[in-house]
Design a protein around this nucleic acid. Structure first.
Lengths: 209, 209
DNA sequence: TAGATTGTTAATCGATTAACAATC
DNA sequence: TAGATTGTTAATCGATTAACAATC
């Protein structure tokens, strides 16, 4: 696809560009320079241009980038131009919050199903609700792009294995464990504990005046 | 405190060491080598030793690291050895999930208060519940180490400003905006959209076999 | 044409990796 | 003593930054 190897840092910045361009788009701003982008996102202009140049040429020399064009280009790079079907395993508060959140729907993600070991307590959710025992049956019958793990810590690893076994290639994991299934399965771990601990470390520095 | 400048990457790895050491501790394993740590966390042994060496000497040449000793040392580096009082602004599902989660309590974080614009709907929460109008009064009267922002996107920025104005030095932000208040306020942004977009990008690669 | 800003290469910097002396 | 593994310096690699020709 692209010539260069795209680093993790670049992959983390792409969504930031996308978010910023969406904001500009809402404000009806139609052109932006790498300097302006860099100032808004606290990067350098070189970095912005390098990042974009990894994927092609999206600007016009002398007059910057067209907001709508660049936004669309980055959406395509990220894969937001095509719809994504999502299932969620674990219907605790996190799972329910994700099932409900309209922000993802807007970008083409649809939560098709929610699984839990006990389905009685779940309410106010638009997606269909299944017992987790149905997971393999469901996945065999329904094309699924992304599986979210929002279970308790203890259940997460087994659920992950079942998902991968059933052919899932993208896992969004909210359980406090590091999932890894090699190069063939994309995993994003949102580890809240780790984030909180990092914050605690940083705040020590800040408070040590 | 420490001589060297600690990079963001190191700060992100420290909690991983801590988590792994906690697991070892539970399993009653009492010694570990940098090679074993590196294999478990998919790092290199050099990296592990370099990371730890940033903060001091915690091992014994020839026989690795004492698990309990190193765990305690990293806890101190992170700041987990002292208790932390936490407030949460926004009592939606995310805010409630955080208020409830026992995993943080175990590490010394106590959620003292939860704020929302409307407090009627909140139930099953141990912490005290306040109207967000009380935020400044509460903060003036109660020492607070960490403030969590779990509001809607629209409210997040204003809440953040009020928190900083009221003297908060650590913000854990779950709203989909990048908060930044300079060097004097520690901020950790958990941006779920960005994580989901990164996942989508990565899964494109994986699926393009 | 003159001014602005990208695309793109080269230089710099910092993080990772390698290596090995110190020492348990 | 011999084997193992850290602490620590040096080498390498990759990411960021700087620079500037291309061009709008």
């Amino acid at each position: 696809m692209e010539k260069r190897k795209i680093s993790e840092n670049v992959i983390r910045r792409l969504p930031k560009y996308y978010r910023f361009l969406s904001e500009l788009s809402e404000k009806k701003i139609d052109r932006i320079s790498s300097v302006e982008i860099s100032e808004a996102l606290r990067l350098t202009a070189s970095q912005v241009r390098q990042d974009l140049f990894n994927f092609g040429c999206f600007g016009q020399r002398g007059c910057g980038y067209d907001v709508e064009f660049l936004k669309k280009a980055i959406a395509e790079i990220l894969g937001l131009n095509i719809p994504h079907s999502v299932i969620i395993v674990g219907a605790g508060r996190i799972g329910q919050a994700l099932a409900d959140y309209g922000g993802f729907l807007k970008e083409g993600y649809t939560v098709k199903a929610v699984f839990d070991i006990e389905t009685e307590h779940i309410k106010n959710i638009k997606a269909q609700i299944y017992n987790v025992a149905e997971l393999e049956n469901y996945l065999a019958a329904n094309n699924t792009d992304i599986a979210v793990i929002a279970t308790q810590k203890d259940a997460a690893e087994e659920v992950a294995k079942r998902l991968v076994e059933a052919g899932i290639k993208s896992i969004w994991n909210f359980a406090p464990i590091d999932l890894y299934f090699g190069e063939d399965v994309a995993v994003e771990n949102i580890n809240m504990s780790e984030s909180l601990f990092s914050l605690t470390y940083k705040s020590k520095k800040v408070n040590a005046f």
